[in-house]
Nucleic acid binder design. Structure first.
Length: 269
DNA sequence: GATCTATGTAGAT
DNA sequence: TCTACCTAGATCG
C-alpha cells in the first residue's frame, strides 16, 4: 500500500521502534539471506524515506534499501516472535517489536554512494523539508507530456502515486491530459502546496484522505465509498459513481498502463 | 481452486 | 508500448 506517505510513516515508525539498539535481521525466505547476515545484530542508526524509497542505516555494514513496489508490506508486531508464514523477504526483530517484509520490489544492501545515486535520480519529495519544488517546475513547464504522466514520474516528483495524482488534479480542477507546459505557474504553486498538505495528513493518519468536509458524503447525501485502501477520495476508483461536487459520473481510462480517474465536468479539457 | 487486481518500476522492443 | 516481477486478498465459477 505504498505512496510516499506510507514510506515516510514506516521510516518514522522503524526509527522509533528499532533505532539505537541491535536488530536481528534475517530472511526466512532466503532471497535476502546473504545481505541480512551482514547487518544481523547491528545497531540501527537511523531510518529515512525519500519518495517511495525506504532506507535503514546500519552504519559501516551498509544501508538496507527497500522499495515496496505495488504490493510490498511491513507487518508491525510485538513478541512473541512466531514462525514465518508465506514469503518473508526480511524479518527484523528488536527488543519490543518485530516486523516481516513481504513482496517488496527491492530489498538490498547498499553503501552510501549507492544511496546517494538513488536520491539523485529522484525529483523533489513534498514530504521532505529539503525539497526544492522549482526543480519539478523546471521539468513540468518545459514538457509536452500530460500533467497526469508528469506527476507520476518519480524523476519529476518523488512520492506521488496514482491516488495522490488523481486527487490533486481533481482538487485543482486540472484536466489530466493538459500538457505540462500549459500549466499556469501560480496553479503549480498551489498544487505543490496542496501535495505537501495532503501527504502530511497521509503520514499522520496512515491513509489517503482528500475530500473537504463540505463534500463528504455525509454532507452531500451522496453514497459513501469504502475502499480497501481506506481513504475518503473524490475520484480514485470511483468510475461511474457521481462526482461528490457536481454529480457527473467519474470517468476512467488507462494511461501509460495505469488507471486514471477524473471528473469530466470539474476538470474540463 | 482458478482468475483477477493493485497505491510500482525497470528493462526490452 | 510492452512485459516481467514480487504477493495476497477479492472475486468468479
Amino acid at each position: 500500500m505504498p505512496e510516499g506517505h506510507t514510506l515516510h510513516r514506516l521510516a518514522r515508525l522503524h526509527k522509533r521502534q528499532y533505532a539505537g539498539a541491535p536488530v536481528e535481521v534475517s530472511s526466512p525466505q532466503g532471497r535476502f539471506a546473504v545481505e541480512a547476515s551482514k547487518v544481523d545484530g547491528q545497531v540501527l542508526v537511523g531510518a529515512e524515506a525519500y519518495g517511495k524509497h525506504l532506507f535503514h542505516d546500519y552504519g559501516p555494514p551498509g544501508i538496507v534499501h527497500v522499495h515496496l513496489g505495488l504490493y510490498g508490506t511491513f507487518s508491525d508486531l510485538k513478541p512473541p516472535v512466531t514462525e514465518p508464514v508465506g514469503q518473508v523477504r526480511m524479518r527484523m526483530v528488536g527488543r519490543e517489536h518485530w516486523t516481516d517484509l513481504r513482496g517488496p520490489n527491492r530489498c538490498e544492501l547498499l553503501d552510501a554512494a549507492q544511496v546517494d545515486a538513488i536520491k539523485a535520480r529522484l525529483g523533489p519529495d513534498p514530504l521532505r523539508r529539503d525539497a526544492k519544488p522549482d526543480l519539478a517546475w523546471e521539468r513540468i513547464s518545459r514538457s509536452k507530456v500530460s500533467v497526469a504522466v508528469l506527476l507520476m514520474d518519480q524523476a519529476v516528483l518523488a512520492g506521488v502515486g496514482n491516488v495522490y495524482r488523481a486527487e490533486v488534479l481533481f482538487r485543482h480542477g486540472v484536466a489530466p491530459m493538459l500538457p505540462g507546459k500549459a500549466l499556469d505557474p501560480a496553479l503549480w504553486k498551489d498544487i505543490w502546496a496542496d501535495l505537501v498538505l495532503l501527504m502530511r495528513v497521509g503520514v499522520r493518519v496512515g491513509r489517503i484522505d482528500t475530500v473537504r468536509p463540505e463534500h463528504l458524503p455525509k454532507a452531500t447525501g451522496r453514497a459513501p465509498r469504502v475502499d480497501r485502501h481506506g481513504g475518503e477520495v473524490y475520484v480514485y476508483r470511483r468510475t461511474g459513481m457521481p462526482c461528490l461536487v457536481c454529480g457527473t459520473p467519474i470517468a476512467h481510462k488507462d494511461l501509460a498502463g495505469r488507471n486514471l480517474y477524473w471528473c469530466p465536468t470539474c476538470q474540463p479539457s
